[in-house]
Amino acid sequence: MKNIFDKQITEEVISRIENLKPDTQNLWGKMNSAQMMAHCNVAYDLTYTDKYPKPTGFKKFMIKLLAKNLVVGPKPYKKNMRTAPEFLIHGEPDFNTEKDILINNLIKTQELGEAHFEGKDSHAFGPLTASQWNTLFYKHLNHHLEQFGI
């Protein structure tokens, strides 16, 4: 797994994002490129904002039981997997706005660095290691860039 906290890797991912266009065709799934970037930005919203309420009780238990290993484990995502409701994008987000937000989220994450994320509480999974945070961020974004052949 590439390390999203490494400046060179972050720049590589940003370069890939720069290759996206509003009309870049997906290879699978239903999202267009703007929706995909808005979808990817949700992971950062969950990390950096209080935009979404945190799951509690049984719901949090089930998310940790069923989704945590999938999200922070090394196994790649399958094509056309279902996503959490918070990650569903409805409507047509602005391509350039979502692209700018995504790039800024990547830069912020890289600049905060591994030490900031070591033991940091995630929205739904509880405390994660920096390595798990890296997997959460990099694997998800890489999956969707590959979805668009980028």
Rank of each mutant, 00 (worst) to 15 (best):
K2D: 08
I4Y: 00
I9C: 06
V13A: 03
S15G: 13
I17L: 09
I17H: 03
E18M: 14
N19G: 10
L20V: 01
L20C: 01
L20N: 00
K21L: 09
K21V: 00
K21T: 12
P22K: 03
D23V: 00
T24I: 00
Q25K: 13
L27G: 07
K30M: 11
K30L: 06
M31E: 01
M31L: 01
N32E: 10
S33E: 03
S33D: 03
A34G: 01
Q35F: 03
M37K: 04
M37Q: 04
H39Y: 00
V42R: 10
A43T: 13
D45K: 12
D45N: 14
T47G: 03
Y48N: 02
T49V: 05
T49M: 07
K51Y: 04
K51I: 01
P53F: 10
K54T: 06
K54M: 03
T56S: 11
K59Y: 15
F61E: 12
F61C: 06
F61H: 09
F61S: 10
L65W: 08
L66C: 00
K68N: 05
N69Y: 04
L70H: 13
V71A: 13
P74A: 15
P74G: 15
K75M: 06
P76F: 06
M81I: 09
E86I: 02
H90V: 13
E92W: 09
P93S: 11
D94W: 10
F95R: 07
F95Y: 09
T97L: 15
E98G: 09
K99R: 14
K99P: 10
D100V: 04
D100M: 10
D100A: 09
D100G: 13
I101H: 14
L106C: 08
L106W: 08
Q110M: 13
Q110R: 12
L112Y: 05
G113E: 02
A115S: 14
F117T: 06
E118F: 04
G119E: 03
D121K: 14
S122P: 01
A124M: 12
A124I: 02
F125G: 10
G126S: 01
L128K: 03
T129P: 05
T129E: 02
T129L: 04
A130P: 06
A130C: 03
S131K: 15
S131V: 11
Q132K: 09
Q132R: 06
W133F: 05
N134H: 11
N134K: 12
T135H: 07
L136W: 10
L141H: 02
H143Y: 13
Q147I: 09
I150C: 11
I150W: 07
I150H: 07
